[in-house]
Design a protein around this nucleic acid. Structure first.
Lengths: 216, 216
DNA sequence: GTTGTTTCTGACCAAATGGTCAAATTATTT
DNA sequence: AAATAATTTGACCATTTGGTCAGAAACAAC
């Protein structure tokens, strides 16, 4: 048995494969975000990736496979900040850091955020299993951290789960509902400056609601 | 010129028209919520409404008209609670009331909430104008109310707009992202009891972050 | 009943779209 | 250069789907 260019028996992608798969995923991310799974056409994705439709199918057999791959790529970056929540750290500092990180994700990856949101809105047909297993375990672990902060008097008594949901909701809002936010604020876009103001506001409201004595 | 069944020259809908348009709108709401605009098929909507596809087109010439009608029907109930925010009332009471009302909307109209969210996620192609005009004016008015509460020392200094966005985000989260919430919490559904716990948590965090001296 | 109007549907069409395939083109190896 | 393998695409097919239309059925007015 001949092993092409690696010791491993695994596929071992060529340079062209790596480049084109990345191009397709990038294009798909945009198109899925703009039109949803059903509204996105393979033709559009191919055009955006600068190749023909059959060539997209050469790399991803079915549209659903492509969608799945896009979601998986998003999940990793979506999840990272929560993992970083440090049990040993100062609660105020840790939470502020988490809010900032999630907000930065919304600012820098609005398209990814929108795809993720659309998937959940549609009932999470693809991510259902993942949410109920990996994500659930992760949140459970971090909820224990928050609970511990509460029990040691470092945080007011609130439901850790709903605190996490509140942070998710508040931060993702600025990516997912950007058209509403900008329309209501009478702005064209949300710039870096505006995101700083958002971070201030969110931290002020949420943290001072959490910290005993309003210590901030 | 003969006026059918009313003095007015306006269409004046028959009983059958009223009944069927309502049926179609209800069916469309479900189907749009489940599949998005492009994923929803007129056939499905017709089947759910218990009639043939051409008959749906008899009442709504194009699918887009139907979608628009559904959105308009949703907007009214979506908007009502904010209008009720009373400048003369007690800030804590008013905000708590608003949070509760929005949360009740999420609980009782999750489907409507999801359609609205999907529309915004797709860039608000249909609602863009409305958001920038009517909604913008309404929020502007209510932001002034909040600003006044701040200026008279009844509320901590936070950006009124971002406070409103925070409340929208937090409350709608439980309708729009229900699959994620239930998966993470390991529940099948969110019952009345859970929504009461949510209301407590949200009010506790947000309000105690807003009221000076933690008076609650 | 007869007549006119509204409501409803089967059959159909044209366009869009996911996916296939054989053949062409390009890269890699020998 | 020749041979082999990987990449790319034009042409094509089957299915889905929004929308139309002629006429049938139900209803209303007389």
């Amino acid at each position: 048995m001949k092993l092409a260019r690696s010791e491993s028996a695994k596929p071992s992608k060529t340079r062209i494969q790596m480049r084109n798969e990345a191009r397709i995923l990038d294009a798909a991310e945009h198109v899925f975000a703009e039109h949803g799974f059903r509204g996105a056409t393979v033709d559009r994705i191919a055009a955006r990736a600068g190749m023909s439709k059959p060539n997209v199918h050469y790399y991803f057999k079915r549209k659903a496979d492509l969608y799945f791959a896009v979601l998986m790529r998003i999940l990793e970056i979506w999840l990272a900040p929560l993992k970083d929540l440090d049990p040993g750290g100062d609660p105020a500092r840790e939470l502020r850091h988490y809010i900032a990180a999630k907000l930065r994700f919304s600012r820098d990856n609005p398209i990814a955020s929108r795809i993720f949101a659309t998937e959940i809105l549609q009932g999470a047909p693809v991510l259902e299993r993942y949410l109920g297993e990996d994500l659930r375990r992760l949140v459970e672990r971090k909820a224990k951290v928050i609970r511990h902060w509460i029990d040691t008097g470092k945080l007011n008594d609130v439901d850790p789960y709903h605190l996490v949901f509140l942070i998710w909701a508040a931060t993702q809002h600025y990516a997912d509902f950007a058209p509403q936010v900008t329309a209501v604020m009478g702005r064209k876009t949300l710039g870096k400056d505006e995101f700083e103001r958002i971070e201030d506001s969110l931290c002020k409201i949420i943290l001072s609601g959490l910290l005993p004595r309003g210590e901030i």
